[in-house]
């Protein structure tokens, strides 16, 4: 059973963290001249989030599913919850098929070392939303 209630909660929590991500200066500098648009498809609950780095915008649900992307990332919502807290070893998760990455991924992989500040932001969002139970030790 998923730790998220439904897709709307995924958007309210992870989507909100990603909105902070695309306006973070380090990400802007790393992606401003590129074409990195990541479509995140989550399972259990099913949720779709589009992260448009050059456009500095995040779309959720049907709006995300209908947009074009350059990188496609698939994972369960629980693993997404772990990842955005810095608790998922991305390389290991790919090797174990917990995460599937497709498309032009070199820029996406290059962003991994920059994700640190987003972890704190996401954890703060969980706290503000009264979902400290989603925090991973």
């Amino acid at each position: 059973m998923s730790t998220f209630k439904d897709a709307d909660e995924v958007y309210a929590l992870i989507g909100k963290a990603l909105e902070a991500c695309v306006t973070e200066e380090t990400f802007i500098n790393a992606t401003k001249d590129g074409t990195l648009v990541v479509l995140i498809t989550q399972t259990d609950p099913v949720a779709t989030i589009l992260v448009d780095f050059p456009g500095q915008k995040v779309l959720c649900g049907d709006a995300a599913a209908g947009a074009s992307s350059t990188v496609q990332l698939k994972m369960s919502s629980d693993n997404a919850n772990k990842f955005w807290q810095g608790k998922l070893n991305f390389t290991l998760a790919m090797a174990q098929r917990k995460v599937k990455l497709e498309g032009k991924r070199s820029t996406a992989l290059a962003l991994l070392p920059l994700t640190g500040p987003i972890f704190d932001k996401y954890k703060a969002i969980l706290g503000e939303a009264g979902r400290r139970d989603l925090l991973v030790d």
Binding site: T43, D78, R97, K98
Partner: peptide
Amino acid sequence: LAPEELED
């Protein structure tokens, strides 16, 4: 040979 679905 890997299945399409995720391991979760």
